[in-house]
Nucleic acid binder design. Structure first.
Lengths: 204, 204
DNA sequence: TGTACATCAGTGAACGCGCGTTCACTGATGTAC
DNA sequence: TGTACATCAGTGAACGCGCGTTCACTGATGTAC
């Protein structure tokens, strides 16, 4: 890619887009900074001006990933049936869909060794996604929005997160492939989760 | 490490041990075949005679990992209180302990891109560990040992696996660090899990 | 409106690295007779 | 018990690779006056 202008103009965004593409095509281990630069049509030294290092770039990708995950959770919760439990089931499916739609990014988000795990923006984005789940569980357990979560309810949130995260992670790793139906793994796995979630929602 | 004999004698085992050490010290991404050879006191070309390729070696490490995981599950289930639910909670803690004791190995076991994921021994070992959980859930739900699992109960097993796996994975990635007590993350996390598991065991 | 100049955002070549695997080879072992 | 010889388990040097980062640099932009 030859540019007509010396300055790219939107290199930061172009690199983030390229990174996402690479993660989708080659997975987390297949990512390289040079390839991202190549796809953005820029020399291998250029990314340093915007992200400092490869870790910096990936941290930004992960941060945006958590924000996108939050959108998936919201969208999943937005169902016809507005009961608190079906909102949570919807969120669970949203979580799974995010993982299946963006496997490379999803895995990156939980590979602290590849990220600046203490980056404030990253932490805020994690917290924001987590907060989405937290609110829903809080409502489900009958808490009022203005009340803080009781420690027991914190545990319920962790449990729910663990459940959907574990399911998504195992599904991505192919551990459920053997029990998939004819319609493919993705379809089977998306059907399985609601039943499981309903059966294992934390007891009030 | 200079050997006195040209033949190592137990190179296969030595390489597996070295691999485990490296995984412990440097994590899954820090593993290299050359380093394993170095630690076994052997040239970089030697491992090929025993494992074909780096993937072959790691597949064997992962296979043994799943067998070890099964031992942790059994040990966890072996509690004073022999009720079905406390057996399951014990297993959950066993799963978590395995992950915390062997983080690199644990992560490797769920990185299909690094393994011969269709290797029969590997698949058998996965199945064996999974079977341990399956039996316990089956008993918990009141099934007789000779009866096959109903589809609903299969779902309960997947849910339980997802729960403990997700919890372990998130704990390893440091996602619970912020809420750890003074005694350290490991201690906090081992205390949290039983309460969560009890609250979320599948309904019969 | 023009201009000097600091700053920003790129280049492209090179550095140093360590990797997994291949290759032709050799030393040691085991087995058939 | 000895021996020929196939097979096994190593060596060590080299191959080819692509990586992230550094470096001295240059072209473009923006701003103060």
């Amino acid at each position: 890619m030859r540019r007509d202008r010396y300055h790219h103009g939107a290199l930061r965004e172009a690199l983030l887009t390229a990174a996402d593409e690479i993660l989708t095509e080659r997975g987390t281990d297949g990512f390289t900074l040079r390839e991202a630069a190549r796809r953005a049509g820029v020399s291998p030294a250029a990314p340093a001006h915007h992200f400092g290092s490869v870790t910096g770039l990936l941290t930004e990708v992960a941060t945006r990933g958590f924000l996108e995950l939050r959108r998936y959770l919201r969208e999943g919760a937005d169902t016809d049936d507005t009961s608190a439990s079906s909102r949570i089931v919807g969120m669970a499916v949203g979580y799974l869909r995010f993982a299946l739609d963006h496997p490379g990014r999803f895995q990156l988000m939980f590979r602290r060794a590849m990220l600046h795990s203490q980056d404030p923006s990253l932490k805020a984005a994690v917290r924001a996604a987590y907060g989405e789940l937290e609110q829903a569980i809080h409502a489900y357990l009958g808490g009022r929005p203005d009340e803080p979560l009781r420690p027991d309810d914190q545990a319920a949130v962790l449990g729910t997160w663990s459940l959907v995260h574990g399911f998504s992670h195992l599904a991505l790793d192919g551990k459920f492939d053997a029990m998939a139906g004819q319609k493919g793994v993705r379809d089977s796995v998306e059907r399985m989760l609601p039943a499981i979630a309903l059966r294992m929602l934390p007891r009030a």
